[in-house]
């Protein structure tokens, strides 16, 4: 609530200021230069966004032309062969699968953390505990990768075997050659990495819940959980959805940790306990060094797909946030 009032005032005064500024700035070189360079850097930012799309397309097209297979349905990634054969099907599957699994694991935990910090933790500790969760975001992905490869993956080996032994009747947990360098391990690491972003945005949403509504629920004789269900969660629903989407966007694009943890194997498989699997981003990091002319183009093409997917997810999330602001 407060932030909105803030924004309202801001735009208002900035608007006034702008008009005033024009009047004042006539003939003043300093003002003109400053205003133009400020606007200019904003425009540069837009230009970069456009350039990303343009250059990726430009470099991707020749490789796609040379491709003998259908880029969207082919599972093989062999752009350095003659003739080049590559497609994004397996990579896209691995990307979506690992990201959705990560989202599935991270969202409930992240909302739990946000609830904990906003409503359950002792007031005095709350901000410190919040900082602790934010530290998860400060750890670079390369360090998660190292930890995943040389420590966590070996632990997940046992977990994978256990799940495979007892739950192989669930298709996801079936199959053989179970190991620690599986899609599941990658998903868990992704989940850890996107926890802080989801929980911090959710916390911000919870902060905006009007105290009056929380008090109304309490005064009706609601328990803490009932208060949360009545006054907090419905109010924060769209905010939580967009938080989860932003988390998803992050998971889709995460490269290094996944590239280190997964042992690449070809072919689409829903057996997430199996060693192997691959994602678009991890594939770029792993096969860039050996890529020739067409290989690079092919990787750029796959990066373009990733760019478009994350763009759609992020824009969707932002649109939800923006629409919510208009309503509330």
């Amino acid at each position: 609530m407060t932030s909105e009032i803030d924004v309202g005032q801001r735009t208002d005064t900035a608007g006034n200021g702008r008009a005033g500024g024009r009047r004042m700035s006539t003939g003043r070189l300093g003002d003109q230069i400053f205003a133009h360079s400020a606007r200019g850097s904003g425009v540069v930012l837009l230009a970069i966004m456009a350039a990303i799309a343009v250059f990726l397309i430009w470099r991707a097209v020749p490789a796609l032309r040379a491709n003998e297979a259908n880029f969207l349905t082919e599972q093989e990634w062999n752009p350095n062969a003659t003739p080049p054969v590559f497609g994004i099907a397996q990579l896209a599957f691995g990307t979506l699968m690992s990201s959705f699994l990560a989202l599935l694991m991270a969202t409930p935990v992240a909302i739990g953390i946000a609830l904990f910090i906003s409503f359950y933790a002792p007031r005095r500790l709350a901000s410190g505990l919040g900082y602790l969760v934010d530290l998860l975001a400060a750890v670079p992905s390369i360090v998660y990768g190292l930890w995943g490869l040389h420590y966590f993956g070996t632990k997940m080996d046992d977990v994978g075997r256990f799940l495979n032994d007892y739950f192989s009747w669930i298709p996801l947990f079936g199959g053989d050659s179970v190991g620690g360098r599986s899609l599941l391990t990658a998903s868990v690491i992704l989940a850890i990495m996107i926890l802080p972003i989801i929980s911090s945005i959710t916390r911000e949403v919870f902060l905006q819940v009007p105290t009056a509504n929380v008090e109304a629920a309490l005064a009706l004789g609601a328990t803490r959980w009932e208060t949360i269900r009545m006054a907090v969660l419905p109010f924060g629903r769209s905010g939580m959805i967009s938080a989860a989407m932003l988390g998803l966007g992050r998971a889709l694009g995460e490269t290094i940790a996944v590239a280190m943890v997964l042992s690449t194997a070809s072919g689409i498989s829903i057996h997430i306990l199996k060693d192997g699997g691959n994602t678009i981003a991890a594939n770029i990091a792993n096969s860039f060094a050996e890529a020739g002319e067409t290989g690079r183009g092919a990787l750029i093409a796959s990066g373009l797909v990733l760019f478009v997917i994350t763009l759609i997810v992020n824009m969707g999330a932002r649109a939800i946030v923006a629409r919510r602001k208009e309503f509330v």
Binding site: A212, E215, A217, A219, G221, A231
Partner: peptide, 29 residues
């Protein structure tokens, strides 16, 4: 929680639950 169940309260500013209908507001308790 039991206390508030038997001692109802009306606040300074009207605070109906914004996400609920008129009916659901009354039925909430």
């Amino acid at each position: 929680v039991a206390v508030r169940r038997v001692v109802g309260m009306v606040f300074q500013r009207p605070n109906p639950f914004p996400t609920m209908s008129i009916y659901d507001n009354v039925a909430a308790g």
